[in-house]
């Protein structure tokens, strides 16, 4: 039973206006990625564009008939003068270059720039960062929670202090250090500053504290080494926390623009998706809004789809820092 009281209607009204503002750029992005340049210029075509055939300007330029084409085609048009032949050939070439706007936009996004390479780089970088973060953080978290050693409190104190340092803030000295050892414009530069996550260590340590000591003792009785315990006993119990941290880490680094901007200069082979999009925006094609929005869509969509599929986990993961 839903009775729409005036107060409930007002609340929905306010929330709907908010939702419209929040969704507006997503709608524009998707809509422009479907439209032809003319439709964007004139503001016509509705949400999805009319999808009328359009001529791909680059293709038309590429296949424009040259003098030798006219010479070669003379046999096909007996008696016609050069002007007519040229006009006919031009029309044929343009007809061969006709595409639907949606195809044009997305094809340009992938063909005019190595977008697939950028996406692959994004996957390589985010995956390496997360894996290395775990390789470093899990043993440390285990040692800090389950092993007794001199200096443990000091190490944990350092972890707590490092939690306060935003890595973006120290980007300049980090960049100088990497430049000194000649690592700028490498995958290593994109990954290295992030591999030690004080937050990851802290989070996993807090989680391991809740794992009963008996479990660890039993594993020791079975003759497992301490390292084996980390990977074969502790890791499986920590899967939920690990998943939340994975989402936190992957979202942050897929979307990161500041750090890649600093350490990758010019080498397109190392561009992450945001760098690729930025180059598109700044380049000569920057007024080709359709392909640009198609690129933006391709970059934004993977995380949005994953979010839709696992909303609760994503919200948990990204607001993880709220657990401090």
């Amino acid at each position: 039973m839903s009775r729409l009281s005036p107060s409930l209607m007002i609340r929905h009204f306010i929330l709907l206006i908010g939702a419209a503002v929040v969704l507006a750029p997503f709608v524009v992005m998707l809509s422009y990625s479907l439209k032809s340049p003319a439709e964007i210029e004139r503001g016509t075509g509705g949400l999805f564009g009319a999808q009328e055939m359009m001529v791909d300007p680059k293709c038309a330029l590429r296949s424009a008939p040259r003098r030798e084409d006219v010479e070669a085609a003379r046999a096909r048009f007996p008696g016609a003068d050069d002007g007519t032949i040229l006009a006919t050939l031009t029309n044929e070439a343009r007809a061969a270059c006709e595409v639907r706007p949606v195809v044009f936009n997305y094809r340009s996004a992938f063909q005019d720039a190595p977008l697939l390479r950028y996406l692959a780089n994004g996957v390589i970088v985010t995956a390496s960062i997360f894996l290395l973060q775990m390789v470093i953080a899990l043993p440390a978290a285990y040692a800090l929670s389950k092993l007794k050693f001199w200096g443990r409190e000091a190490v944990f104190g350092l972890v707590l202090f490092c939690l306060l340092i935003p890595v973006h803030a120290i980007a300049l000295p980090l960049y100088l250090g990497l430049a000194k050892i000649g690592l700028t414009n490498t995958y290593a530069a994109l990954v290295v500053p992030w591999i030690v996550s004080a937050f990851g260590i802290f989070l996993m340590r807090q989680f391991f504290m809740t794992v009963p000591d008996d479990l660890v003792d039993a594993a020791r009785m079975d003759g497992m080494s301490e390292f084996a315990i980390v990977w074969r006993v502790m890791l499986p119990t920590a899967i939920p926390a690990l998943l939340a941290f994975a989402i936190f880490s992957v979202v942050a680094h897929w979307n990161d623009y500041f750090w890649p901007r600093i350490v990758v200069t010019g080498d397109r082979n190392l561009f992450t998706p945001p760098l690729g999009l930025r180059e598109f925006q700044a380049g000569a094609d920057g007024n080709l809004y359709g392909p640009m929005m198609a690129t933006a869509t391709v970059i934004v969509i993977p995380l949005i789809v994953a979010f839709m599929l696992a909303q609760r986990r994503f919200i948990e993961g990204i607001t993880l820092s709220g657990m401090k």
Binding site: A143, P173, I201, E226
Partner: peptide
């Protein structure tokens, strides 16, 4: 245990010092 404890936290410790603390000092 003390030995393993240090061994396991050493990489994290070393990296925190070089990647986070050293840049602040620098």
């Amino acid at each position: 245990q003390a030995g393993t404890g240090w061994l396991m936290s050493a990489p994290a410790l070393a990296l925190m010092l070089t990647i986070l603390i050293a840049p602040v000092v620098l």
